[in-house]
């Protein structure tokens, strides 16, 4: 090992010796847990179909139930454990979106309902909403022009 590092040398050295995330293991876990969450969603959809709900109501109600489940599991301190295991598998489905809103709301309750819960609730989900809406506007314009 050399005596004096430049920043560039040091960055390369650290990159080389830092332990890497276990990508394959994480991908497999994400696939399984993410898949299971989707199966639960499908099960609820099927159940609602059997109850005679119409097609356009189905997706909204399924979504609402999945968000509810994500929020409940966050409140019960379970979703963070799930996330630690599953990574993107539990972040990507809509339950993960619920988790990203409920978890800061819980965290900042100690700063009150206005400056705490209200102000901080969207610190993680906020960017997703902002850029999600912006992207859909762009896609909408493109669709209008191409059509």
């Amino acid at each position: 090992m050399q005596k004096n590092f430049t920043k560039e040398d040091y960055r390369k050295y650290v990159e080389q010796i830092s332990p890497k995330s276990k990508v394959l293991r994480n991908v497999v876990r994400a696939f399984i847990i993410g898949g299971l969450i989707c199966i639960v969603g499908q099960f609820i959809t099927n159940l609602l179909t059997a109850l005679g709900l119409k097609k356009d109501e189905l997706s909204s109600i399924t979504t609402i139930i999945m968000i509810f489940l994500g929020a409940i599991l966050t409140g019960l301190n379970i979703y963070d454990e799930l996330g630690r295991y599953a990574g993107a598998g539990s972040i990507v489905p809509i339950t993960g979106f619920a988790n990203s809103i409920v978890s800061p709301a819980m965290e900042f309750k100690s700063e009150g309902y206005v400056t705490g819960v209200g102000a901080k609730m969207f610190v993680i989900a906020g960017p997703v909403i902002v850029y999600g809406v912006a992207a859909s506007v762009v896609v909408g314009i493109l669709y209008y022009l191409i059509k």
Partner: peptide
């Protein structure tokens, strides 16, 4: 936040 389901690098 503590309850956010995320992974940390090693």
């Amino acid at each position: 936040p503590l309850e956010l389901g995320s992974q940390r690098p090693p």
